[in-house]
Amino acid sequence: MTQDLFDDEAASGPLPLAPGAVVLRRFARPYDGALLDAVREVIAQAPLRHMVTPGGLRMSVAMANCGDLGWVSDRTGYRYDRLDPESGKPWPRLPDVFRRLAAEAASRAGFEGFVPDACLVNRYEPGTRLSMHQDRDERDFSQPIVSVSLGLSAVFLFGGPKRSDMARRVPLDHGDVVVWGGPARLHYHGVLPLKEGAHPFWDGCRINLTFRKAG
């Protein structure tokens, strides 16, 4: 079940979603050029790919990783690994602009001292979606999740601690950052199917950077 979230008054400032969860409108826009260069650098070393779920289904969202750890899905399960399974090499280092943006967004949301060791780089093409889920593969749930939306606009779904809880529909535009932790750390979340469009950051696609403290 979902509930539309109308946020015109909060369009230029922090938008609370729940205790421990907030949207920072346009927070990443000052970093545009550096972020674009960094994303290109990461995927040049670890190309985007469609991973497979433990049930053998191909994921619609293409992804790569950077940082000390990378999130991996295959027929053996979900996990973090220090090596890219396609190359056998360590994942690309976390670019300085990534680390700085994640720390500043977390601090703005009330989570001081956030030092991510993993960043998932996801590419959404029109029609792709992300089913409701919890982020449970990390060791320390006291650390927040920082999610940066770049390129095409999307509708983010943010629910509660149970899958059956009503989820808000949160429109996200280029540069918006969602941070959730504390009592909201294990809330269900997802993304509705992406609509067609164009954006100069990444033409025809949405890039999502999700920062985590996984180890």
Results as ranks from 00 to 15, higher is better:
3 Q>N: 05
4 D>N: 12
5 L>C: 10
6 F>S: 14
11 A>H: 10
14 P>T: 01
15 L>W: 15
19 P>A: 06
20 G>V: 00
23 V>A: 02
24 L>W: 03
31 Y>E: 12
32 D>R: 15
33 G>K: 05
35 L>M: 09
39 V>Q: 06
41 E>R: 12
49 R>F: 02
53 T>C: 10
54 P>L: 06
60 S>T: 03
63 M>D: 01
64 A>V: 08
74 D>G: 13
79 R>M: 12
80 Y>I: 01
82 R>Q: 11
85 P>T: 09
87 S>Y: 12
90 P>M: 07
90 P>W: 03
100 R>D: 14
103 A>K: 08
106 A>M: 12
106 A>S: 12
110 G>Y: 14
114 F>L: 11
116 P>Q: 13
123 R>D: 04
125 E>H: 07
125 E>M: 13
126 P>H: 06
127 G>P: 02
128 T>V: 01
133 H>P: 01
133 H>T: 03
133 H>F: 13
137 D>E: 15
141 F>Q: 07
141 F>V: 08
142 S>D: 14
143 Q>Y: 08
145 I>C: 11
154 A>S: 15
157 L>G: 02
158 F>Y: 14
163 R>P: 00
165 D>S: 06
177 V>T: 07
181 G>S: 09
184 A>F: 02
185 R>F: 02
196 E>P: 01
197 G>H: 11
199 H>A: 04
205 C>W: 03
209 L>R: 11
215 G>Q: 10
215 G>C: 02
